[in-house]
Amino acid sequence: MTGLMAMRLSAYVRAQVALAPLLVALAILGIFYGGGQAEPAEAYGMSAVVLFPIFAWQVKILLDVEPDVQRHIAITAVGSRAREMGNGLLTGAVTTLVTVGLGMVLPWLLGGVSELNAKVPLGPSLVLGLWAHLVAIPPAVALGALASRPISRSAGVSALVLTGGAVLAIVLGLKGSPVPWLVPPLMATARATVNQVDVSTAALLTLWSLAWSAIAIYGYVRLRRFRP
């Protein structure tokens, strides 16, 4: 499994397609943190929201770099379709980690955050920030997988799935939304980071994210039956 992961990551880097989402992430974070200083935890919560579509895009690119015929060879090489799909999703999650790193470090380099007068101390802010970004990864992996070539088939449908999914995640996640549970808890997590998050709230939001991702990934696996 690690051999296939290494090969896929190598193809992702060598094909030079990894650069575009990273540059976009840099631009977005530059704009986001360029306007003034915010409290770290609160800023990290919103940073996870704006980086969510980038995460999903990275996963889609990782899955699309591999030609269909090579994916079929990979299935026979690892021994089952389930292992190949699991490997693809896991490797997709790995591609987002660099962007998470950018999201955590860049605000300090750009002077976009300040711990002075912050409601949440620096240590817990960093933990909350990391948690907020990590909570966004599983749903981004699921959305990226649904936008990938085997499922979406055309560039237009793929773009629609990716942007539609990201927009809905924000719009339906706004405070007062009648159906917030239809989307992953990006906005709910961002709202939670404004104050100290208690353990039960963090556990609930994490479970929500994992449950939403599990349902979306189940859909991906079902669709892959006809589109290996």
């Binding site: 051999g3 290494a6 190598s10 193809a11 094909a15 030609p67 015929v69 079929h72 090489a77 021994g79």
Partner: peptide
């Protein structure tokens, strides 16, 4: 299981040696 497709996907960013070495590692 060894699978030989009708049209092999050559559009991959590796040399033939690196590709085969990676496939051997996966195996």
């Amino acid at each position: 299981v060894g699978w030989v497709p009708e049209r092999f996907a050559a559009a991959q960013p590796f040399t033939a040696r690196r590709y085969l070495l990676q496939m051997a590692a996966i195996r």
